[in-house]
Amino acid sequence: MSSKSPHPRIAVFKFASCDGCQLSLLDLEEELLDVVGAVDLVYFPEASRRMAKGPYDIALVEGSITTHHDAEQIQHVRRQSKTLISIGACATAGGIQSLRNWQDVSEYVRTVYAKPDFISTLKMSTPVAEHVPVDLELRGCPIQKHQLLEVLSATLAGRKPNIPTGSVCLECKRQGTACVLVTAGMPCLGPVTQAGCGAICPAFDRPCYGCFGPMESANAPALAQRFRVLGLSQPEIERSFRTYNAWAWQFRRVSEGSAGAPAAGHEGRQP
């Protein structure tokens, strides 16, 4: 903690991302004043011109690492921060921009930019944890603001934050939502996706599209096999696992086709 203020010093850093996750902090509306009263937001360029130097008690890191500069910068952030929390699908899995990991980035650069020589970029978009040790990950695209609040409250109280790592289905059932996979045959990623969002999509009659990334023991190949039984084609299945958390290895097992062939075994008794 800082010698001047009794409150923890918090810094918010951004790498390759859309800003949606750090905006969840400002989006706390009702709780925002409490937050500002309880912590010292010493570095948050999105909200304030104040840009205090480290060290920081907590660094909230948004975005994936996509340039050489990012790769250097994240080392610096880590050295300056007691606790490093990566927030959102970009920071925890590489984000939607990790789709480039399967493409030739230099070709993009040549096509898009008039003067490609000015562009210095890495071949891949990778999560923060591939570069430095991360203390906690908050998932989601964007993160759930109450999870962020929970992490801050827990830090202030010196307790472990309640960030469940089981499936979205557990939340879905607790809410009493009728499963859209079972009642409507929708390809829902809930069974392999980490809880935390409150199972919003199924509550609005939409399948979960996995924005919280793989749950603790995601069995993506088995779910892909079910999708096949529901009538999805192989390209459709691969696409459904290749979105915001495409680079997570649990989802890559399906989208890279290593689990592409129908698995041995059977689908259970059919009607």
Binding site: S167, C179, P191, N219, A222, A263
Partner: peptide
């Protein structure tokens, strides 16, 4: 190998009673 560890079965089951306790605290 087919099981997703999703917990739909225990949630839907009329007799599964297991619970977890969470301690929560306010910011202030």
């Amino acid at each position: 190998k087919r099981c997703l560890s999703c917990g739909n079965c225990t949630s839907a089951c009329p007799t599964c009673f297991c619970v977890n306790y969470e301690e929560q605290s306010s910011l202030d």
